[in-house]
Nucleic acid binder design. Structure first.
Lengths: 207, 207, 207, 207
DNA sequence: AATGAATGAGCCTTCATTCAT
DNA sequence: CATGAATGAAGGCTCATTCAT
């Protein structure tokens, strides 16, 4: 009996996952406002109605997708670097981890950008927004910790971490839109350069 | 005869401009995906159909709006700073100009983001894309020139300018999303800090 | 110019009227909850979207239909009877007028009944409801006046008028549902009988 | 074997009854058009599919519910009054019984109305219609008998009973709509008044 | 007998776009 | 040029119903 329930639950989760995958593919193809429930369903091999057995809303799909992305981001950053690294090396390892995560997976990046635009008016409850923000902060925390290990106090570490994140995001944006190629530059190289000069700057700090 | 044609052309351009103004107001009010042709027409005092005498497409409106934005951006940056400033001061003045332009006018920023994500299918032809890119580069050129005046060669100046642009865009993105507030930071302060450390770094360069 | 506007307005009103007619036919055929915008449009020879140029939403159609019905009812009752009739005769004329109106036009009756059921949850604002009620009271007022002319005070006249209306409505309900045929009776005969005994009762009153 | 079958039948009937109860509760809560099969199933502790083991259709549920309503109506009227009452008193008791039944339980009334209007297509077969009509006539028969006891012949008794039923139904309709409140009247008071003047009229009859 | 998955038709509504006038 | 009418495709969503398990 229990085994049966277990199997059913697993199958259900599997199908939900397949639908999320389909949704990601659709959003990549048609843009995030352009992707419709019908299209997602078709991509997943279902009818529109079937989606509603697994997600309450269209927004619920965004939410699940985002949560999943952040989860993987978190795991990726957590796994980066080695145990007994120098703080500066750890910073580079961790920061490169999240940058690489988004650079390699434009779908995830797209979804992240979506937060910027379409989702404000309707969906994305304040609660969910905070929740997602916390997960993002969690994922970036290792960089902050490394910055503190390098001698920054809490405030300064948060500030530098924010600047670091912004820098990376800006580069990813340019990369994603093809602008960076038009500038004749490479996003990853520029990110590395930023990291290097950041470390340098911190190490030259008085005291 | 010719005078008459001239007058007609002027009137037509005027009306087109009024429609663009209306579009901007509508997008301001309803967001960029939320604004409909009908709404824009009504705001401009016309019927939906009339719009099509001036614009081929809805996407064409976005394009025209963005071109106009870039024009204003260009002018804003060009006007910033004074004639005989030290290069470092000029850099700060010019960079702050474009950053401030977008920080103060989120809808212009929105428009830029939208074009990237929503307009793929028909709207954004490769040609238009290049054209817009060139205008953007034009607008950012003063910063690049300033960087060269500070002793960088052409390649390095372009690289630093790209990084600077990316940094600012990343910050604007975070600001726009409200994320930056959740990080407890201020976008403009961070941008200024970046500028200061950039100048410092360049001035400490050997040779 | 003005003539043109006039003609356009007239045409527009005409089309709106045709749509309302179609709506009535559809509601008669499919029931009032069963009638969809699509069906109404098709019946009128349009696409669903076209309806929305003339009515803001589905409820607005109900509202317009009801208002129109009440208007015709009002006119019908007002026109009934002659100027210098005896009060009792006038009562019979006026009452028979509204009864006949509904008896002859089941569509209108159906719509009236609709108020009973489906429309409570959603549409039918309290305001519209009051408005419609007032129109109904207006239409029935001539009977009330006649009752007063027969010697009843205001309260009694209102009470008797309400009872009279209820009696007629009950009969119309039975007629409409075919029940009355199963009872082997005729609605109009029964209504006349009620009127006769009402008059008789009032005339036998002391005082 | 037979005992087992018997037990199974009893259980089945029980569950069917529980589902009908659930349906009634759901209709009470959401209105008769607003209640869905899913909702009814959930209320009864089942899944939507399970309903179809007990009812062929959604309309079949309405039918069963209405049959049950008529059954209860019948019982209510049968139980009203006492054995050796004067015919006039018995008439009043019996009539008040069915009127009170519907006045106190608007959803039963709703159900009756619904069958008439919404169920045309498949649900209400001619046969079922006749069947329901017979049950209704059965329920009203005691009033007819009382009328005959008061001296009316069969035809007149049926006619008066029909009028009485119509009068009550009309009042219930107005009460149900809230119209009667707008008229400033009370349905039960008006029904009692009708009964009183009916009795009076019959007793004053010549012969 | 009951479940849970899925369907398919339908619902109201919005909107860019076309076109005769 | 501008209008007003109309289209047709699409959107999110609901729901009675079927069916394998």
């Amino acid at each position: 009996m229990e085994a049966k329930l277990h199997r059913q639950k697993a199958q259900s989760d599997l199908r939900r996952g397949l639908m999320l995958d389909a949704a990601r593919r659709v959003f990549e193809r048609l843009g995030i406002e352009g992707g419709s429930i019908r299209e997602i369903a078709k991509e997943a091999g279902y009818t529109a109605g079937a989606i509603y057995s697994y997600f309450e809303n269209k927004e619920a799909i965004y939410g699940a997708l985002l949560a999943e992305t952040l989860e993987r981001l978190h795991a990726t950053v957590a796994a980066a670097g080695t145990a007994n690294q120098a703080p500066a090396d750890r910073l580079e390892a961790k920061a490169s981890a999240w940058f690489g995560f988004f650079a390699d997976s434009p779908r995830d990046l797209d979804l992240g950008f979506y937060l910027v635009q379409g989702m404000r008016p309707r969906g994305l409850t304040t609660e969910l927004n905070h929740q997602l923000n916390d997960r993002l902060l969690d994922a970036l925390r290792p960089c902050e910790t490394a910055l503190q290990s390098m001698g920054l106090n809490a405030d300064d570490a948060l500030r530098e971490n924010t600047a670091l994140f912004a820098h990376g995001m800006g580069l990813l944006l340019l990369k994603h839109t093809g602008r960076i190629r038009m500038f004749g530059q490479d996003a990853t190289l520029l990110f590395d350069a930023y990291l290097i000069s950041l470390v340098e700057r911190l190490q030259k700090r008085p005291g």
